[in-house]
Design a protein around this nucleic acid. Structure first.
Lengths: 202, 202
DNA sequence: TACGACCGTTCCGTTTACGGAACGATTTCA
DNA sequence: TGAAATCGTTCCGTAAACGGAACGGTCGTA
């Protein structure tokens, strides 16, 4: 964008928009009218030749009665397509980071794919993990002594040893994970998963 | 801003962005640097005086390691349930309590029964709630301006005003709720962080 | 075959989001 | 105590997203 001059927005957004529009039997003109935006805007967007503002996206998403994330293709929407198997068993999304004088908390949403065991190396001493199962069955905890938990159950452990995550029963499992990192040392800030979404750490 | 000259982007986006940035201990300059955008852009965005492009939003969300929906927080869809009924709609289970020099964290599992609206009074200033939906559809947040979120979505708000929880769509909903109560370091209000007990009923 | 209604695309002037630079205010350190 | 670094805000020229208008193409209908 800034320097290269060849910025082009993800063409998948345009394809998805066109799909949603046609699924509703709307013409481009009609969608533009309902959304209160110009036809040129919708056309350019569907062709991926525009970099829309948030306001434009809101207007169009509202006219289509979909959440904006249906257009932006955030992670999270299975929506078929795209092979879900990516070589890592745990797809995590960072929800929040809380930084306090005493500790940093990171709150993740985990999607654990079945049939694979995801190992995680030891964190620094003092780090604890707190996992609450919300769907499926998860075997997790220290690699030496993992525990099995089902929906509604909660597992905590000291994460200064290698630990594992695995979904049992052939089903994908879901969980909320809270990682607490005390600040007794010079804390590395939110260095976790700087690559963006769907980092497979934890 | 098509016809009316008074379009202004939702200021909640700016507040949320600032919150996420500060939670990571990042300066505005540092975030701008990491995201590859101008400081003026981040500043204007946090103040709600700009209508960012999708590209800008992607860059900033990536720099914060959050999905874009963590910043955009779709304004909710129409309410599903008819007229809500009051009652003890929320069954909460306390999973963990973390006490730190800076704040106390309480992690709950919520089961929200359908068709009723559970109101919660204001917590002391500084308390924030962070709710991650794991099943069903939940309408929650400040009573004055609640949001609707579905599975995988995440909502945060300042809990120093009355707030509500309701399950939409006639289904029971599930969520993980994290309540953060900062410890009073200024001594302004004498009641140092002992808000734990009343928070226990969300 | 002419005609009006609508389609999606392209052109164009206006508006505005963009990054860089300059600014004053703090903080850090010699 | 001054110089340097960094903070967040503001100013400004440029690039581009915007809506409206004009365009050619396609479809019913007279």
């Amino acid at each position: 964008m800034g320097t290269d001059g060849t910025s082009r927005i993800d063409p998948a957004i345009g394809r998805r928009l066109r799909g949603l529009r046609e699924a509703r039997g709307l013409s481009l003109s009609e969608l533009a009218r309902r959304a209160g935006v110009g036809k040129a805007t919708v056309s350019g967007l569907e062709h991926g030749t525009r970099n829309p503002t948030l306001e434009t996206m809101y207007a169009i998403a509202a006219a289509l009665s979909v959440p904006m994330s249906a257009l932006t293709l955030d992670p999270g929407a299975p929506a078929g397509a795209a092979s879900p198997v990516r070589g890592t068993a745990v797809l995590s999304t960072l929800l929040e980071v809380f930084r306090d004088p005493g500790a940093t908390y990171e709150m993740f949403r985990l999607r654990i794919l079945p049939g694979v065991e995801q190992a995680s190396p030891a964190h620094p001493p003092g780090v604890t993990e707190h996992l609450s199962v919300v769907g499926g069955t998860i075997r997790t905890g220290p690699a030496a002594a993992p525990l099995t938990a089902g929906p509604g159950e909660h597992v905590s452990w000291a994460a200064d040893v290698p630990h594992v995550y695995a979904a049992l029963g052939g089903e994908e499992a879901h969980a909320i994970l809270l990682i607490r990192t005390p600040h007794d040392r010079q804390g590395a800030a939110g260095a976790a998963g700087s690559a963006g979404e769907q980092a497979a750490q934890a």
